[in-house]
Write a protein that binds this DNA or RNA. Structure first.
Lengths: 203, 203
DNA sequence: GAATATTTGTACCATTTCGCATAAAATTTA
DNA sequence: TAAATTTTATGCGAAATGGTACAAATATTC
């Protein structure tokens, strides 16, 4: 059952790349304010091609959210390398997050999920669902690393890893919001440093 | 120089009330997805009246943001009553926040500022400015209460009140996002409890 | 009561919006 | 090379959008 070449005219674009370009548009403008013309221009695909490949605007937006979730989880997992101290893991998570949040043409864009999906979460159940699932997955990844720390005595034996992980995430959520609000890199890095201290204990 | 009654046909509406009704619309739909028809229906004002009294859609939205900022600051200040222990202050802040965040017709609406202003913050500088200013004011209010705690020995003398206040706010930011994402009240209350412990120290 | 000032309601306009119909183009299979 | 299949490009269209012109309505001031 090997995959033969699909018959018919071949696509002149790479779906993953297009989703990435669409993400940039949504990231800057939000879902509702992003028009199909904006998306068409950024992806260099005309509307019928976008429709044929991805469905309507909401479908395409959901694809960009899923892509961001996956990318983020890869970065998070790498930062959580258990060979490193938990303190270092957290510092890396926040550093990687800030690298993403502080990037942007006109202003720092913050977290794609938090900055754009929250706005739509009430009216679009599927968006709220992706948002909820993503936040939970991030929490879980951190929780598992913390459970390891508890086993290894790096964290106190009575630590509630699940709750502590949610607090570690909370710092990241705050960085996301503050970055989009225009806080300086210095301010955000200071919050990240103290966040590490408070989650892992001051040394 | 006393204020005489303004001449001309009097307004048949209360501006504050209208801004409150408009806020509900923006809260559920976000700025971009809220149409003037939605706003007109919710406020029972036709478009020319809205325009005459508040300016264009962005002006009206900024009014709703300012109103929310003011309301929130009042609630925050009340919760920060210095006659109570800091621990109790924080618990009240989170409880008041959750009261607001978990309210909603179809789904919990989260924080009006974080859920709707972040999406527009890149394209609309004035929105980003209100968002930034609001977050800073909340931080400052908490910081001042914490400085008092340091003076009174409730917090260690070497406490960095400004940073600790930002961490306390971070927990609130996370509650805001998670509420809008659909987390349960129980989950959020657990985060709030552990947030108090981590900021004030476990007892 | 007349003049003035402001608000309100109706209707409208130009633009933008999303989405699709249709046909041309490009590729595989027969 | 012809048929079949899928993608691309042009262009259309119905609906919704933000915003406004204009006149009627309602108050104050003179």
């Amino acid at each position: 059952m090997k995959s033969e070449k699909k018959q018919g005219r071949p696509r002149a674009f790479d779906a993953k790349a297009v989703i990435g370009q669409a993400r940039e548009v949504f990231w800057d403008r939000g879902f509702s304010a992003a028009s199909l013309d904006n998306l068409s221009a950024a992806t260099k695909l005309n509307r019928p091609s976008l429709y044929g490949a991805f469905g309507d605007k909401e479908d395409l937006y959901l694809d960009t959210l899923e892509g961001y979730r996956e990318d983020s989880l890869v970065i998070l997992s790498a930062a959580l390398n258990p060979a490193l101290p938990l303190r270092e893991n957290l510092a890396r998570i926040y550093a990687e997050a800030l690298k993403i949040y502080l990037h942007g043409e006109t202003a720092a864009r913050g977290c794609f999920l938090i900055s754009t999906a929250t706005a739509e979460a009430i009216q679009h159940d599927r968006v709220r669902e992706v948002l909820r699932r993503s936040l939970n997955e991030f929490d879980d990844a951190i929780k598992e690393r913390m459970e390891l720390s508890v086993e290894q005595g790096e964290l106190p034996a009575d630590t509630d890893a699940a709750t502590l992980a949610k607090l570690a995430s909370a710092v990241m959520h705050s960085l996301a919001v503050r970055a989009r609000a225009g806080d300086t890199r210095e301010t955000l890095e200071a919050i990240a440093r103290s966040g590490v201290d408070f989650v892992c204990g001051r040394r």
